[in-house]
Every structure is written in structure tokens, then in C-alpha cells.
């Protein structure tokens, strides 16, 4: 073994030491070999006098209170150590992420449920208040409706008689018209209020949907940016930069923004589904909100029929 190899191998065996100490002790051996050479020995002979390099390294490490087997083990594992550490960090990060995700998921589910409930609650409240408001007038309408239908059926039978009585019943009709006017304007007011309420509700719905969509888009965009940043940070982290904290923070922000986006999505998606299931149920007794346009027409149609029928009923009476 020549001097260069010896020094290199000795340095490798003592790599656990601080660089300063390592250079210091190695220079002693270097000098020793030089002096041996000066006294007439060859490099190989001088180095052979040291005996086994491993034994020598162990002795040196013992002087530094370092266990030789630790140094040897470290040397053996050096290549796999980095990988092992990285894997450990990965596993830990994964675990933390999973835990964080679970926690976040549970929180979001709760919040989603809460928001959903509160939304449905406000919807029900609004719908209830509108029903109550419109209920003041349509209650009578309902009765009149029945009257009207009865009137129509009866009027059908006595169609001929009605033509003849048309003029003679003129005075009675006038009084009926005056009360009918009052009722009609009241009904119209009710309809307008109902229409306004429904329109505002509809607008609120559209606004809410818009906010949800914009929020979802923003959140997902932000999340994507964070994910991109996270990738860069992860690569830098693996290269040895001390960015673990920043990377974790970035991961957290990305997860939370995606979760927020998901929350928005569920709000949009879940809001549509119940309406679809509610439609056939509510459609039977009262026209539901989404069918507003057609419902309005029906009601107006009914209204006309109603007034007409009422007049007929009066005539009939």
C-alpha cells in the first residue's frame, strides 16, 4: 500500500471525526511516513509498521471516545443511510398528511353538513314565510276554486238559461264586480309580492351558485398553484435545503384549498339533488319554485277561470 492509498483509506475510516481533527491526526501519520522514509525505509515498509488499518482506525477512534464498530457500520450504511432517512421522512410525512387529511375531512364534513342544514333551514324558512304570506290570499282562492269548479259544472247544465238571464242580472253583477275588483286587486298585490319574493329567492339562489362556482374555481386554482410550489419545494428538500417547514405549510395550504373547493362542489352538487327529488313530491300539491314560470301561468289561468267561474256562480245563484 502506498502513502496516498493509506492516507485516503485512513481518512475514509475516520470520516466520522470532525474535519479539523481528521486532518490533524492524518497529518501526523503523513509526517511519520515521511520521516521513516528519510531514515531509509520505503513507503510500504513504513506503512506496514502500522499493522492493520482497521485496527489502527479503531484505536484512533477509541482515543476520541468513538466506537469503532459504529464508524464501520456507518461507513457500510453510508450509501443506504440517506435513502433510509428519506424513506423515514416520506413515511412520516405520509402519516402526518393522512392524519391531517382525516382531521380536515371530518371537519369539512361537519361544516358541510352544517352549511347544508343552515341553507336548507333558511330555504325552508323563506319558503314557509312566502307560503304563509301567499296563504293569506290563496286560501280564499282555493275555496273560490272549488266554488268555481262547482259553478262551471252547474253552469254547463244551465247554459241556455244563463243567456237569457244575462241582462236581468246586470244590477246584481255590478255589486259583484265591485267586491270582485277589491278581491282581484288584493289578489294581484299578493301575486306581485309572491312574484317578488320568488324572484329575490331565485336571485339569491343564482348569486349563491355564482359565489360557489367562483369560490370553487379560485380555491382549485390556488390549490393547483400550491401543489406546483409543493413539487418544487419537495425537490429542493430532497436536494438538502432546509425547507421542511415551508413544504409542510405549502402542503397544508394546498390540501385546505382543495378541501375548500370540494366543499363548494358538494354545496353545488348536493343542492341540486334534493330539489330533483323534492320536485315530484311538492309538485303534487303546490307548484314548486323551479316551475315558477309555468306555475304562474297556471295560477293566472286559474285566476281568470276563477273570476269567471265566480261570476258564473253568482249568476247561477
Amino acid at each position: 500500500m502506498d502513502k496516498k492509498t493509506f492516507i485516503r483509506e485512513l481518512k475514509q475510516a475516520l470520516s466520522v471525526l470532525q474535519e479539523e481533527e481528521l486532518d490533524d491526526i492524518v497529518s501526523e501519520y503523513e509526517q511519520h511516513i515521511d520521516m521513516k522514509q528519510a531514515s531509509g525505509l520505503t513507503e510500504e515498509e513504513a506503512i506496514a509498521d502500522f499493522g492493520s488499518l482497521n485496527k489502527l482506525a479503531a484505536d484512533i477512534l477509541e482515543a476520541y471516545h468513538v466506537r469503532a464498530d459504529y464508524a464501520a457500520a456507518r461507513e457500510g450504511q453510508e450509501s443506504s443511510l440517506g435513502e433510509h432517512r428519506r424513506r423515514k421522512v416520506f413515511a412520516k410525512t405520509k402519516e402526518i398528511c393522512a392524519r391531517f387529511g382525516n382531521l380536515l375531512g371530518a371537519g369539512m364534513r361537519k361544516m358541510c353538513g352544517w352549511v347544508k342544514n343552515s341553507w336548507h333551514g333558511t330555504k325552508r324558512f323563506l319558503a314557509g314565510s312566502i307560503r304563509w304570506m301567499s296563504g293569506l290570499l290563496p286560501d280564499k282562492t282555493g275555496e273560490k276554486c272549488r266554488e268555481a269548479t262547482e259553478g262551471i259544472s252547474q253552469a254547463g247544465e244551465k247554459a241556455d238559461g244563463r243567456k237569457r238571464r244575462g241582462r236581468t242580472a246586470g244590477n246584481q253583477e255590478k255589486g259583484g264586480l265591485q267586491t270582485g275588483m277589491f278581491e282581484r286587486t288584493g289578489k294581484l298585490m299578493g301575486r306581485i309580492i309572491l312574484f317578488c319574493c320568488e324572484m329575490s329567492l331565485w336571485m339569491i339562489g343564482i348569486l349563491w351558485n355564482g359565489i360557489c362556482i367562483v369560490g370553487v374555481l379560485c380555491c382549485s386554482l390556488f390549490g393547483g398553484c400550491c401543489l406546483f410550489g409543493l413539487g418544487i419545494l419537495a425537490v429542493l428538500l430532497l436536494q438538502g435545503y432546509p425547507l421542511a417547514g415551508v413544504t409542510l405549510a405549502c402542503l397544508g395550504v394546498a390540501i385546505s384549498s382543495f378541501s375548500a373547493a370540494w366543499l363548494g362542489m358538494t354545496l353545488l352538487w348536493r343542492r341540486k339533488n334534493p330539489e330533483e327529488t323534492e320536485k315530484p313530491v311538492s309538485g303534487n300539491d303546490k307548484p314548486s319554485r323551479p316551475l315558477m314560470g309555468s306555475g304562474q301561468n297556471d295560477e293566472f289561468g286559474q285566476n281568470k277561470e276563477d273570476g269567471y267561474g265566480k261570476m258564473e256562480a253568482r249568476q247561477h245563484a
Partner: peptide
């Protein structure tokens, strides 16, 4: 100095020369 010391010690006991340097290091520490 180190080499001188190794030679001095070698006169008294026949010892592996390499082991004296760690000893010097430890006594210095």
C-alpha cells in the same frame, strides 16, 4: 514532536508505532 516521541517509546517497549498517535491525541484532549 510525534515521530521523536514514537522513537523514544520504541526504545523502551516494542509497540505498534501507529498506536502512539491516538494516545497523544487523547492525552492532549
Amino acid at each position: 514532536y510525534g515521530y521523536e516521541l514514537v522513537e523514544e517509546v520504541s526504545k523502551v517497549v516494542d509497540v505498534n508505532e501507529g498506536t502512539i498517535y491516538p494516545l497523544l491525541k487523547r492525552l492532549t484532549n
